[in-house]
Design a protein around this nucleic acid. Structure first.
Lengths: 217, 217
DNA sequence: TAGATTGTTAATCGATTAACAATC
DNA sequence: TAGATTGTTAATCGATTAACAATC
C-alpha cells in the first residue's frame, strides 16, 4: 500500500478547510431531499436552504468531483455518493472514546456518527465504578486494556474526553498503540510526538463557539 | 440604555471571527501562567504554547485593547482582565438548556462554562420521566414552564440540544420569550423570525469537526 | 427555442504574514 | 547600552464573490 496522502491527491481536488467544514451541511440537505423523493437538486436550492451563496455551493461541491447538468442541477443520488466518498463517510472507521465522563458517554449516544461511518466500539476509563458498565450499547473497559484493544481491533480514531491534566499522556498512549486520528474534546492543546506526521489531532473547541456567542450577542 | 452594538464599537476594536475564536486559547494559556505565579508574559511565549505565529498573537490581543511593554510582554493580570472583558466573560449570562438528553445533561456538567460567566440555571424537557430530576445540580423543568421561566429569570442564552424535528419550533419559542442568543447543537440550520436582527444563532457543529478529521486523516 | 444553471476564469475582499521603527 | 518585544504599516496569500460562456 502506497502513501495515502499522495494517492488521495490524484482522485480528489484540494479542498480548503472552510469548504470541508461546509460539506456536511450540504450532505444533510441532499439526504433530506432524497427522503422527500426528490431526484435532482440545484446548487441554488441548496444555497437557499443553508443561507449561502449559490456560487459558493457550486465551488464547494466541485471538490467532490460531482458534475452537474446545466439548467437542472445535480442528481441527488450521485451527489450524496460523491459527498460521502469525499468525506470518507462511505467506509467504516473504528473509534474508541477515551474518558467515560459526561461528554464521553453523550458522544456514545450520538447516532449521527454511526450513520457517517464512525463505529465507536468501546469506551475506556480508569474509574472502577465505570468500568464494566454499558452506555448506549457501548461497553466501558479499563484504561489498562486500551493499548491492546486498539491494536487488536485496529482502531484508527480516538475521541478524547478526559480531564485536561491527563490528556497529553493518553494522547501519547493511543498514538503509540496505532491510532491515526485524535478528536480532542479537552481544552488543552495536544502535541504529537516528534516526527509523527502521520497522526492528525483535531481540536473540537466549545469555548471558541462560546466566545463567538458572547462577543457577537 | 442605548444600542449595545453601537456602544460596543466605541470601546472595542472590530475583531474577525477567526480572531474571536482564538481568544479563549490565549486566555487559557495566560490563566495557567497566572497559576504558575508568572507576572508578565510575551506574545512569543503564548504563540509557542499554542503553535501559532507571534505576530498573529500580537494582532489578536490588540483587539482587546491591551497594551504590552516592548522587551517585556503583557502584564498577566491585565491581559486576563482584558480578554475576559472583551469576551464578556466577566459578567454573568443566565442560560437554559433546552433538551435534557445525553448532550444536554453533559453540558450541564461542563464546569468551564460557569467559570466564564455562563450560569445555566435550568434545563427543560417534555419527557415526564426527566422532569423533576437534577443533573449536576441543575433541575429539569417541564417544557411548558419554559417561556415563563425565561421571562422571570431574564435568561438571555438558550442552549438547544433537542431532536432536529422540534428544534425550529423551540427556537421560535425561546426567542418569543426574550432569549437573545441561541447556541444550536442540533444538526439543523435554524432561522430567526423575520426582522429579529437582535437575536444571534450560533451553530455548534460536530459534523464539521468530524468532516475535517475524516478528510485530513 | 428561451432561460435557468453549471463550471471556469477573473476580480475582490479579508485575513495572515512580513518588515521595521519605537521602546523599555 | 544591547537586544528582545511591541505595535503599526505594507505585502502577501488565500478564500469568496463576480462575470460570463457553455449547455441542456
Amino acid at each position: 500500500m502506497k502513501n495515502n496522502r499522495a494517492n488521495r491527491a490524484i482522485d480528489r481536488k484540494a479542498a480548503s478547510l472552510p469548504t470541508i467544514r461546509r460539506l456536511p451541511g450540504y450532505l444533510q440537505v441532499v439526504r433530506q431531499a432524497e427522503q422527500d423523493g426528490i431526484l435532482v437538486i440545484s446548487g441554488t436550492t441548496i444555497a437557499e436552504e443553508l443561507e449561502l451563496e449559490p456560487i459558493q455551493v457550486r465551488k464547494d461541491l466541485a471538490v467532490t468531483g460531482i458534475v452537474g447538468k446545466p439548467r437542472v442541477g445535480y442528481v441527488v443520488k450521485d451527489l450524496i455518493a460523491a459527498l460521502e466518498h469525499f468525506l470518507r463517510w462511505d467506509q467504516t472507521h473504528t473509534a474508541i472514546v477515551v474518558g467515560a465522563g459526561h461528554l464521553g458517554t453523550a458522544l456514545l449516544g450520538h447516532t449521527e456518527f454511526r450513520k457517517n461511518g464512525m463505529n465507536i466500539s468501546a469506551a475506556f476509563d480508569s474509574d472502577p465504578a465505570k468500568v464494566g458498565k454499558k452506555f448506549h450499547g457501548v461497553k466501558v473497559l479499563d484504561s489498562s486494556e486500551m493499548v491492546d484493544y486498539i491494536k487488536a481491533q485496529n482502531a484508527t480514531v480516538a475521541i478524547l474526553t478526559v480531564p485536561s491534566h491527563v490528556a497529553q499522556e493518553l494522547c501519547n498512549r493511543v498514538i503509540e498503540a496505532g491510532v491515526k486520528s485524535i478528536w480532542n474534546f479537552t481544552s488543552l492543546k495536544l502535541r504529537v510526538p516528534e516526527g509523527r506526521t502521520d497522526v492528525l489531532i483535531q481540536k473540537e473547541d466549545l469555548s471558541s463557539g462560546y466566545a463567538v456567542l458572547s462577543v457577537r450577542a
